[in-house]
Nucleic acid binder design. Structure first.
Lengths: 200, 200
DNA sequence: TGCAAATTGGCACAACGTGTCATGTGGCGT
DNA sequence: ACGCCACATGACACGTTGTGCCAATTTGCA
């Protein structure tokens, strides 16, 4: 691996300085009561520079404009059919497990982030929009790579995604209780049991 | 029923004028390219008055600040246990059916609204946030009135809500195919079948 | 008719976000 | 080591969203 150029390293440090300053200020005074000017000042950059690194004020908590791409490629790769006997359901579960594992792995600065997002409707909306984009990709991938009709792909994708979010929340509530993958399996089983009466 | 006072009727006409002007302009130039000043001008009010009727620019497409309350009370009332043998699942289905019926009944200005929302990420995010608030209420109601543990209430509420959204979309795609209530039942059955392999 | 209360719109203001441009710094070939 | 070119930075001006304040107007009611 080649060491990144001096320019890129400097840019990376600037990014991290901005994020750190933003998280500090958000936890001190709340998201809404913190201005971009304050963040820029603490990070020792101009406000104009802030908007070069992040599309908007919300973006600073979502890892910049290209953070989604990483998750999306992970989704795409883990959702591809593995072998001839791979069912769409097992692919969806495997994919959800992969994303959850990755998500829970870097649990370092998650708590602060989650706390701020939960406390701010605008950020919560942004997060839901991000999830919605994930679901759209999942549906498309399921339909295209597994040959599912769009309606079936939509159903499978959304139900499994819903269970995955729930499993993540359960894991967050008590990370020592069970691995997030086990929480996922448990949640899916519970959902199946709850809906069982509808299976005529 | 008492006839609303002259003041209230006038206010109502102003509201409708603003909404009509906004929808027109949004369809002409798109949401982002339309300024509040333009809306206010076409509705023949001041921009200051616009923000007295709607909390923000997005709100004009979501029926004002108190439109949610109507849906929320409908959710609450239809979600209450009906009789001793009423299961949480059947209550959730009944509630979803009630909201969907109400939603599909006033299908007049729905298409334009849905089109604009679908084309604008900021509005889509707002809609998702609104749905999220619904789910929160559903979960709380399910836990409180039906005595479900929070985890179970969260699962049941979200899964049924997901199916309800899907049923609504299917109904929108072809309103003549089946009543939205039938679509809901069909979707729930399909979800149960899809998840069946997880029922050990 | 006349008074109290509510609605209205204009103004000033803070914050977000973007286009533009002069300045400074890093990368790189000579 | 030098100089050139590309790029990053920050400053300024600008449009838009959203809010507080206040004077003018209109409504409801006695």
């Amino acid at each position: 691996m080649t060491r990144p150029s001096l320019r890129e390293r400097k840019a990376q440090r600037t990014r991290e300085a901005i994020v750190a300053a933003a998280v500090e200020l958000f936890e001190e005074h709340g998201y809404d009561s913190t201005s971009v000017a304050q963040i820029a000042e603490r990070a020792e950059v101009g406000t104009r520079t802030f908007f070069r690194y992040f599309a908007d004020k919300e973006d600073v908590l979502f890892g910049g404009p290209d953070a989604d791409d990483e998750v999306l490629t992970l989704i795409r790769s883990s959702l591809a059919p593995a072998g001839a006997s791979d069912s769409p359901l097992s692919a969806a579960e495997r994919s959800a497990r992969a994303v959850l594992d990755r998500l829970c792995a870097q649990a370092g600065l998650l708590p602060a982030r989650e706390r701020i997002v939960a406390a701010t409707p605008a950020l919560r909306a942004r997060q839901l929009l991000k999830h919605d984009r994930y679901v759209t990709v999942i549906e498309a991938e399921l339909a295209q790579r597994h040959g599912l009709p769009p309606e079936r792909a939509g159903l499978l994708g959304r139900v499994v995604f819903t269970c995955a979010v729930l499993a993540y929340e359960r894991w967050c509530a008590d990370p020592s209780a069970a691995a997030v993958g086990d929480q996922l399996e448990r949640t899916l089983a519970e959902a199946a049991a709850v809906l069982a009466p509808f299976q005529a």
